[in-house]
Write a protein that binds this DNA or RNA. Structure first.
Lengths: 188, 188
DNA sequence: TAATTATTAATACTAGGTACTAAGTACAAG
DNA sequence: CTTGTACTTAGTACCTAGTATTAATAATTA
């Protein structure tokens, strides 16, 4: 729905909004949408520092590509900063607003669970481990932007079963604790 | 490291591999890498049906953009197919290889947890709910491609606390069960 | 009305291509 | 040795979605 004529600043505000919703729009489509010439759109982009379509597409592609890659590569959520195999490990994770509910900015539980689970697996000296049973408790809600520090400790090893305790803190406060029983699967 | 001269089919095999690893490469960079003319690269791409750089970038961007959007919109993992508010709910989720470990094809625990958690939240008639405590048990590993069916039942409501039981099955076998205690947060 | 701001137009130039034609090179078969 | 075929390179015209710049016109404000 093309707008009727408005002021420059109004148009620029709407332009920003429009591109946030629909970033893959050409100048030509924009100038039809706003009922102005293509040069006006380009001046607006110049003033607002909005890059051209192809740059916008590239940015989205690169951001997501690297995300997918790093997740596939490491298979650990968060950054491993300390590791004593079969004993203990520490990882950190900076939470973002993408991990949280829009309304409350509370980080969704499965992100915290994923961090704990992957750290528990990392600390085990087995090629492949699988979560058997997890008993866990969330204490305080985590907000987007909080920096999580996870500590894993191997409590007991019994054959193929590993008992790992994971605690996650924000600053000095514990926000999660869980007991994982991991079962190693050996290669045939 | 530019290759020494090889055959056409060898080069094309390597080209496919190269672009899978590094999809954001121009023909010019490729022709230097393979030590052939730019036209050869273009003929190769034509024969192999590989689109131009800008199309490749666009594809990656669109794929990931829509993924982020759909995840943000629904905030439920899996497809909700039945819902009796404050009583029970059913959702289904087709697992993919992206959710699994590369080596074993076993689906990572947090995806199963996320499905259960979000279904538990969906069944509650509260604007925003937060996982308090979750006690859970995985029984059988889930393999990439398995179709998960989750059933949630509200066991008890006590003030702001909701006790929800979630069971996830693959065909007739239970692969997960968990008890969630959700706490509703009211608006001020 | 004059000055200022906003908009439109026009032109030259760019990257990273497509599509096409033509010519050159390598190598094995006759 | 020459011919045929596959492969490779070169060159041209054209495309999209722009940038950067200059100039002219329209709208607003002092």
């Amino acid at each position: 729905m093309p707008r009727g004529k408005t002021t420059k600043s109004e148009r620029q505000t709407q332009l920003l909004k429009k591109l946030e919703e629909e970033p893959f729009v050409t100048d030509e489509e924009l100038c039809e949408y706003f009922q102005v010439s293509i040069q006006t759109i380009r001046l607006d982009r110049l003033e607002l520092g909005i890059p051209e379509l192809r740059e916008r597409v590239k940015k989205v592609a690169e951001k997501n590509y690297s995300k997918v890659k790093s997740l596939g590569e490491s298979e650990i959520i968060g950054e491993l900063i300390d590791l004593h195999l079969n004993q203990s490990a520490i990882s950190i994770l900076e939470t973002t607003k993408e991990m949280a509910f829009r309304k409350t900015k509370i980080v969704r539980g499965h992100h915290i669970f994923a961090m704990a689970e992957s750290l528990a697996m990392a600390v085990i000296n087995a090629d492949v481990a699988l979560t058997g049973i997890a008993n866990m408790k969330y204490s305080i809600p985590v907000l987007a932007g909080d920096k999580l520090v996870a500590k894993a400790e191997v409590a007991r090893i019994r054959g193929k079963k590993f008992f790992v305790h994971v605690k996650i803190n924000v600053k000095q406060e514990q926000v999660f604790r869980g007991k994982f029983i991991l079962v190693s699967i050996e290669e045939e």
